[in-house]
């Protein structure tokens, strides 16, 4: 009788379980789950069920990220333009690869939207045009992909999944600002004035550089030019999107210059000067730029310096030097 009950129980539980789960790809059983550390104060990260973080996947992704073999002619790796010391950005004027696990729009003109896997697939297939015959003929990569994804043939899917796993570990949230919020650091008077300017409508930075990520991940025309570059219009074809670009994160902003989508400003001081007096009218300027009519927020020299001082509190030195994120070939 007990055997009958056990079989019934087992079958029943199987029914309950099978009736509720999604039909996602099961992770490779022999892999080791990777324990992702989410910075304090950040929300949980949504990770696709078919690409859970594993130690093997993250390590493979890190190797790929730094390997010029990813590019068809072996000339560039992700890390060529996304340099750790520059918050995974560089003077190539690319957006920093940080905290992307919470993003849904990628690239300045939001050419790719979706998951980190989607942007990494774009990088592999369209940007690098990776030669997978080359990867498949490399015994080390064959072995690493086998361990991480249990595949005998490497495709753009596995490569983008591995890169996405590593990119999800590039999380920066331990700046002086974060320590200030946690009561572990105090601002100087100048930094605190900058903090107040940032978070009130006098400076009015917070509407676009919002949340703990200092970006709203949205597209805006911030009044850079009277005849703006196309920006998001190139993607949507909607004239209302002309001149709109993604709000970049301001975390580690002191290390991610030059600034704006075309890298026209070399210093934070130039950026603050622009918002203070350099706004230009065009048809699609965002209504959040409410000082457009007067050319900007008209900050005094002291307040501009304070705003820059606050922006520098967003630097996370630990992240910029974290050896676990560094070039594994060195």
């Amino acid at each position: 009788m007990s055997n009958v009950k056990n079989i019934t129980l087992g079958f029943g539980l199987l029914l309950v379980y099978a009736g509720c789960i999604d039909d996602d790809i099961a992770p490779v059983e022999s892999t080791t789950p990777y324990e992702l550390e989410i910075p304090l104060g950040f929300p949980d990260m949504t990770i696709p069920a078919d690409n859970p973080l594993t130690v093997e996947g993250v390590q493979l992704g890190r190797k790929l990220y730094y390997d010029k073999m990813l590019e068809r002619d072996n000339s560039r790796a992700c890390a060529t333009c996304h340099v750790q010391a520059h918050s995974f950005s560089s003077d190539a004027n690319v957006l920093p690869h940080i905290n992307l696990g919470w993003s849904r729009n990628f690239l300045w003109n939001s050419k790719v939207s979706g998951s980190v896997e989607d942007i990494m697939l774009f990088e592999v297939e369209e940007f690098f045009k990776t030669d997978f015959e080359k990867l498949n003929n490399d015994p080390e990569y064959s072995n690493l992909f086998k361990m991480a994804f249990n595949v005998d043939q490497i495709t753009s899917t596995e490569a983008s999944y591995a890169l996405a796993q590593f990119v999800r570990t590039l999380n920066s949230g331990n700046s002086k600002f974060d320590k200030f919020l946690r009561g572990e650091a105090t601002f100087t008077n100048e930094e605190y004035l900058g903090y107040e300017l940032f978070y009130t409508e006098e400076g009015d930075c917070f509407h676009c550089h919002a949340t703990m990520f200092f970006t709203d991940n949205s597209m805006h025309n911030n009044a850079l030019d009277s005849i703006p570059d196309p920006g998001y219009f190139e993607i949507t074809g909607d004239s209302a999107d002309y001149g709109k670009f993604k709000s970049p994160t301001l975390r580690n902003i002191a290390f991610t210059g030059p600034y704006m989508h075309d890298g026209r400003f070399n210093s934070l001081e130039e950026v603050v000067d622009f918002y203070s007096r350099g706004l230009e009218r065009s048809a699609t300027v965002d209504p959040l730029m409410k000082n457009l009519a007067s050319g900007g927020i008209q900050l005094s020299a002291g307040k501009k310096a304070a705003l820059v001082a606050f922006l520098k509190t967003l630097s996370d030195e630990d992240f910029l030097t974290n050896p676990e994120l560094s070039d594994p070939f060195n």
Partner: peptide, 20 residues
């Protein structure tokens, strides 16, 4: 058998109520 029938009934109810 009555016991197993009861278990089955509970499980069927679980199946019905277990999914959003």
């Amino acid at each position: 058998m009555k016991a197993s029938g009861f278990v089955m009934a509970v499980l069927v109810i679980s199946l019905i109520t277990g999914c959003e």
